[in-house]
């Protein structure tokens, strides 16, 4: 059987597909920011002098990292409303679930970046009379970001892909809209091919932005 390729029908769905793309971008953006923030807090907790705080951080990371994103999403969408009688909209539910999920990864990335910084950097700052907060802001944090930038960018890309899981709770992100178009037109090959191309372009754009950011944080990287 020969398939005759025809993408022309897609022009009728530019508006819903465009809306789906915007939803994907919004969801990914929110999750990246919230996940990074939660991950940062967990990473700071993992460095605490208090054993209990360190253990709480480790438990948080292990719990969220070892449960599939889909399970966490269903937990927030189906289980928690039943238990609490409180139902959020789909966007917020997906935001919360994926932020928690990715925060575990952000935590590990930031912790790794922190451990990569030579402890002598703290002493170098202390010997100048800088405060601990000052040393962290001006000396340690820039080096963590520099060391962790490729992994952070990778995680942001991962988030865009994870966000498609929100289609399972009928949040109208890009993949969900694609599925609807495909079902209406009975043309899954063209629809999913086109959506794959769009997602690839989106992620390539993200990669490009993250490269610029990495170069910026590397402090005008020079030739040896």
């Amino acid at each position: 059987m020969r398939h005759i390729w025809d993408f022309s029908f897609l022009v009728h769905y530019l508006v819903p597909l465009g809306r789906g793309l915007m939803n994907t971008i919004c969801l990914s953006g929110m999750v990246t920011v919230a996940g990074f923030t939660l991950g940062l807090l967990a990473a700071i907790a993992s460095m605490s002098p208090l054993r209990t705080v360190r253990m709480a951080s480790a438990a948080y990371v292990e719990l969220l990292r070892n449960v599939p994103a889909l399970v966490i999403l269903f937990l927030f969408f189906y289980v928690i409303p039943v238990l609490t009688g409180f139902q959020n909209d789909r966007f917020l539910t997906a935001c919360v679930a994926f932020s928690l999920y990715t925060s575990a990864y952000f935590c590990e990335i930031l912790r790794g970046g922190f451990l990569a910084v030579d402890p002598g950097q703290w002493e170098g700052g202390q010997a100048l009379g800088l405060s601990r907060a000052g040393i962290f802001c001006w000396i340690i944090a820039p080096q963590i970001i520099r060391a962790a930038m490729p992994s952070l960018a990778n995680e942001a890309i991962e988030i865009v892909k994870i966000s498609t899981v929100a289609s399972t709770i009928a949040f109208p992100e890009f993949l969900y809209q694609t599925k609807i178009v495909s079902d209406i037109e009975y043309r899954p090959i063209e629809t999913y091919t086109a959506s794959a191309v769009v997602m690839t372009v989106l992620i390539l754009a993200l990669t490009w932005v993250s490269r610029i950011a990495a170069r910026h944080f590397a402090g005008h990287r020079r030739k040896k």
Binding site: D118, G120, Q121, E123, G124, G125, Q126, A127, L128, G129, L130, S131, R132, I139, P142, Q143, R146, A218, G219
Partner: peptide, 23 residues
């Protein structure tokens, strides 16, 4: 902390491994 910082800014230190800030 304030007293330590005040002491350290009056006492310069040079380390074996330099401890320059690479960024």
């Amino acid at each position: 902390g304030g007293e330590l910082r005040n002491l350290r800014r009056r006492v310069g230190m040079v380390f074996q491994h330099f401890n320059l800030f690479p960024h």
